[in-house]
């Protein structure tokens, strides 16, 4: 089953994705799976949508979101929703926000 969702970037991460702050995506689960998780989405974003080659600014250790990036699922910290294991629902809004440190 394919799921349409919105992905947003902030805190400078948009630079890694061709300057796009919002991507409308239709995610197709891989063969063996019935659904897609945040982990699948992160891999898809790295492999298919990232225009900048500096992957380490988004993920570490293959496809894990690097420390310093907040992942928000429908305006809630992904920790509340199961982090990488969260199963993406149709219409979800996923925000990747780099934490800022300037002051």
């Amino acid at each position: 089953m394919t799921v349409p969702l919105t992905v947003e970037f902030s805190g400078g991460l948009e630079i890694l994705f061709g300057g796009e702050r919002t991507l409308n995506i239709t995610l197709r689960p891989s063969d063996k799976q019935a659904s897609s998780t945040i982990a699948d989405l992160v891999k898809y974003l790295c492999d298919e949508r990232m225009t900048d080659k500096r992957k380490e600014l988004f993920v570490i250790e293959e496809y894990h979101v690097r420390p310093g990036i907040l992942v928000l699922i429908n305006d809630a910290d992904w920790e509340l929703e199961g982090e990488e294991e969260y199963v993406i629902q149709s219409g979800d809004q996923i925000l990747f926000a780099s934490t800022l440190h300037g002051g």
């Binding site: 310093g68 440190h101 002051g103």
Partner: peptide
């Protein structure tokens, strides 16, 4: 909220 320090930081 931030158990691990960021691996990359931009300054103003």
């Amino acid at each position: 909220v931030f158990p691990t320090p960021p691996s990359h930081v931009d300054a103003c």
